[in-house]
Nucleic acid binder design. Structure first.
Lengths: 319, 319
DNA sequence: TCGCTAACTGAGTAAATGCTCACACGAAAG
DNA sequence: CTTTCGTGTGAGCATTTACTCAGTTAGCGA
């Protein structure tokens, strides 16, 4: 705690300060430049950097009527515990950007609870976005457990740090699932799950108080394919068997029933049990995901949903 | 819950949607105009309105090193429970704009607690800004009680709706203090406090679990003078007697000791007792307030502080 | 010591924004 | 029925912002 005489601010400090003056103080970049004794261009760079690095958080504080209506309609149609619909960002934009802040707010509700919870999490871009959008909250009373294996076929772990990043942010203990996402054989999967440490994490995940997952589609742009967990051949085969969507790597059909087929015999993590009363929150938006989300809602793999306006409309149109 | 066929969005809905697209979606106003089928100027108006009406909340998510250092220094120097320092907004800017979001975040910490709390509040511009910056949180378990009377000499109540506005936002029961801010005579004050309903509110305020107050200076630009609670003559008289600052209308000297003099004999509300262990949070920033804040900290009328960078430096320079 | 790369800087410019103005519409008052 | 006032609308323009590009410097390896 040395009070440095010359604080020698880090570049991020500068960016934060510039962003503060710009977004909170409403100064122009010229004024900021004068204030900090730098050139206008430098000020502009700092401001844009503050935004790019997520130092500045923006939230909408108003429930748009149309979205409220959609939430009610979704809740009625699918018997949801909770639905959250945010406005779309227009065609072409990444829907994750839209739902991430709302998803973060939903997660915060659980994190703020004082009673300890076990929170089980999947992976995927949507959850990653959610964690990035989350304000740091200290919630060491909760336990964060991964639903999905953390051993990728190519060894890249970057995709699985959702639980870890979240744990970093909220200072909670976390339990990764030390198994391959999808094992080459059903036997190898069984061997992993016979190990006591794996059992313990799996039990924790299966009995979690709260589940938060993304929903993947099984069309030709399936995340499982893009991320290299299933081959093109496996995907085609499962599509033929009715594969429509996937939660935490477990594939289900248009009605939301898990297939007993293909990679589902070798998927390493814990299957999200359908129909349980505990909150099971799906974070998912995008036109191509609609059939998958529909299935997951129908069989109650998830009973709460954060999505965007166009996706909500597509889901309701499907009824 | 009628799902209207034509949602007929309210003007605020439109503003919220435009603001969402602009700040969260990163679209240009031209794109928003195209998306919503309106003119560019209209889009610009909606965006600026969304910001003006506080539909869009912006927060800085980075603790600037220099501010952290100042927080530590303040905590050490004054033995604070908690200190929060935000960067200044540059000379000439209203420091309330700077501290309001941070103050709101501090208040939120208490509001989020599940156990019921009694929260006592003062008034003033800083608290008003804090409430405006607060995200709506449902916290009906808490009780909000005013420390200060709500009867102004000129009858204008606009200044005293801090507790009411807050109660609106968080849906908590609130207890205004039905006495004059400052009575003309000590006898009238005593008469009010003899009334049982007043007693009850005063007891509640005196035993609150959390105190949140602004700090007023007693220099020539004293808020008490500007708002018409004390006359110029009274102010001069009290200045001569050492008056330096004021919390909830109760005047104290440079050491933070309450004066037994002047308006202090006729002030209607409840005095914040110094030195108690419960959190007593002061929200105050501005060069002219430094001596007042210093006094309040020194005698521990407040034991937590939200302020801005220049004020923090001024306080430390005074040691 | 000498390139070489990569990051950073500042100038200029195109784009986007916000501000002011004049006008149109509708409601309330005369 | 007319007038007047307030509110909202679109156009033009000054300001502000973001992007591109060329030049510079610092760090690094040969």
């Amino acid at each position: 705690m040395t009070p440095r005489p010359d604080p020698e601010p880090s570049p991020q400090d500068d960016a934060a300060r510039a962003g503060w003056l710009y977004y909170l103080g409403g100064l122009t970049q010229d004024q900021i430049a004068a204030e900090l004794g730098i050139s206008r261009q430098r000020a502009q760079r700092l401001v844009s950097r503050a935004m790019a690095e997520g130092l500045i958080h923006v939230r909408l504080n108003h429930r748009i009527g149309a979205c409220l209506d959609l939430e009610t309609a979704l809740t009625d149609r699918f018997g949801l515990t909770r639905a959250r619909v945010v406005p779309g960002l227009g065609p072409g934009a990444d829907p994750v950007r839209a739902v991430a802040p709302a998803a973060a707010a939903e997660l915060e509700r659980f994190l703020r609870m004082t009673d300890p919870l076990t929170i089980a999490l999947g992976t995927g871009r949507a959850l990653r976005g959610m964690v990035d959008a989350l304000d740091p909250v200290e919630a060491p009373q909760h336990r964060l457990v991964s639903l999905i294996g953390n051993i990728a076929p190519d060894g890249s772990a970057s995709f699985f740090d959702v639980v870890m990043r979240l744990a970093d942010k909220v200072l909670a203990p976390h339990y990764p699932m030390p198994v391959p996402v999808i094992s080459p054989t059903a036997e190898e999967r069984a061997a992993f799950h016979a190990l006591p440490p794996v059992r313990r994490v799996a039990d924790l995940a299966a009995t979690a108080d709260v589940v938060v997952v993304g929903v993947g589609q099984m069309s030709d742009d399936a995340p499982l394919l893009k991320d290299g967990f299933v081959s093109r051949a496996e995907l085609t085969e499962m599509q033929a068997a009715g594969a429509t969507g996937e939660v935490a790597g477990w594939v289900f059909d248009a009605e939301g029933n898990y297939l007993d087929f293909g990679t589902n015999r070798r998927t390493g993590g814990v299957r999200v049990a359908p129909g349980l009363p505990r909150p099971s929150l799906g974070i998912a938006a995008g036109a191509s995901k609609a059939p998958a989300i529909f299935g997951a809602l129908k069989s109650r793999i998830i009973n709460s949903l954060v999505t965007d306006e166009p996706t909500a409309r597509a889901l309701l149109a499907r009824s």
